[in-house]
Amino acid sequence: MHRLVHAMSAPPASATFHARTTVNGVAAICDPLGGLYLTESGTLVVSDLHLEKGSAFARRGMMLPPYDTLATLRILEAVIARHNPRTVISLGDNFHDRTGSAAMPETFRQMIAAMARGRDWIWINGNHDPDGARGLPGASMDELRHAGLVFRHEPSRIDAEGEIAGHLHPSATVRRRERSVRRACFATDGKRLLMPAFGVTTGGLDLRHRAMSGLFDRGKLVAHMLGRDRIYSVRYDNLIG
């Protein structure tokens, strides 16, 4: 829950709090709350919010806590407040299932409306929510070209150049001596960047997993891992010490 806790407090002044990177020549900041901020265009990218996951499960008889949507939106509020972006792009799997956006309680709608006020808001469609966001501000689309980059939910097998994608929930494992630590991460080789999942009840998939193979130039791949209160940047080859 450290992300939620830190979302509520001011960022500590530390040199390693953010990590700066470039994707296809476009400068970006990896925020430890899980958002990517493109400094020149004033664009904030988040991915895989999986809103209304709790209620999606409850509908099927598993009464998961109904607090995940609120928790995720709180962190989103914090990261938006921190960067005050002109544009917000939510990169798909914004809702855990098709019914999520229509069934979302009114209070959460108002929170999103307040966040979207005075900015452009883009919902990229994901595999969980291919029909777009209903009754919410902003535009829904499958893909967006913007600020010299291309934004889509699932990483493309053929078009890596300047792609920002989500879907895979990348995480990385650091191993030293006999211990290991696993954290969600931004994964980039300078050409493409995969976003960590932003939703509070989303799991992760290790960078070494088969589904990740062929996506990156591993020699240049860096995992910007979401730590307790900072980003830890570790080169792929250096994850296992």
């Binding site: 953010h18 990590a19 211990r179 630590v181 307790r228 940047s233 250096n238 010490g241």
Partner: peptide, 29 residues
């Protein structure tokens, strides 16, 4: 093997190793 507490310490160690390398990506500050 100590679980839990040592986690972020481990990450720092791995990240520090990285700091010593000439990488295309820097840190702010």
């Amino acid at each position: 093997v100590i679980h839990g507490e040592a986690h972020d310490f481990l990450l720092t160690e791995a990240a520090d190793e990285l700091m010593n390398e000439a990488m295309g990506t820097g840190h702010d500050g």
